[in-house]
């Protein structure tokens, strides 16, 4: 069966990828040096091969490798399994660093940096509830979806998004813990998002 063959061929890669995910998580949660060392030994030669082709010079290539892996060490918490494999995340970091290195090297005067173009290493905005711009919805639609929310969620969303209160204020006004306000908000937004994607 074709599917079976493909699965078998990919199995070692999947295993490596899962192992790398665990390493990144251990680096993120407790700065585990042994886990980082594994990531380092796996990726350094691969990054070097990419970097040599891109930079055409060993010193610059090594700088690109080191800079990329330094970011992996320092920012492992920004890796998100839902967005893709560890190798893809690390490739995109290398691509960003390459872009900024070439910019400096060529003394380009433009101000546009890799972080603007590809948000690989940007801290998530504090307000993770920021609505996505991809879906332009009419107020009417939002109104209908809002009405469909459970009462408790509706109450919280209304206070925050319509009356403009902070989560702390809502917690005090309703006499419930801040954590509950946060989880209700998150659940409600998640639900709205699901309802919106169902409409596609």
């Amino acid at each position: 069966m074709l599917v079976g063959i493909e699965l078998n061929n990919q199995q070692p890669q999947v295993d490596i990828s899962n192992e790398m995910v665990r390493c990144l998580q251990r680096v993120a949660s407790r700065r585990c040096q042994a886990s980082f060392s594994k990531l380092f030994h796996h990726f350094a030669p691969r990054l070097r091969s990419y970097a040599l082709k891109q930079m055409g010079n060993d010193a610059l290539a090594m700088e690109l490798v080191q800079e990329t892996l330094t970011n992996v060490w320092q920012k492992a918490h920004l890796f998100d399994t839902e967005k893709g494999a560890p190798s893809t995340w690390i490739f995109t970091i290398a691509r960003n660093i390459r872009f900024d290195m070439l910019r400096k090297q060529q003394h380009r005067k433009e101000d546009i940096c890799a972080d603007d173009l590809w948000p690989v290493l940007c801290e998530q905005t504090a307000d993770a509830a920021q609505p996505e711009l991809d879906h332009q919805v009419t107020l009417e639609q939002v109104g209908q979806l809002f009405e469909a929310l459970p009462d408790k969620q509706k109450q919280v969303i209304e206070a925050i998004y319509i009356q403009g209160k902070s989560q702390q204020e809502v917690a005090e006004a309703l006499g419930i813990p801040l954590g509950t306000v946060k989880s209700r908000t998150r659940l409600a937004l998640q639900r709205l998002k699901e309802m919106l994607s169902d409409e596609d």
Partner: peptide
């Protein structure tokens, strides 16, 4: 595309 490019561009190794 990024996943596909990774397969293509981070495939080879050059030992340090």
């Amino acid at each position: 595309l990024e996943a596909a490019l990774t397969e293509q561009l981070l495939n080879e190794q050059s030992a340090l």
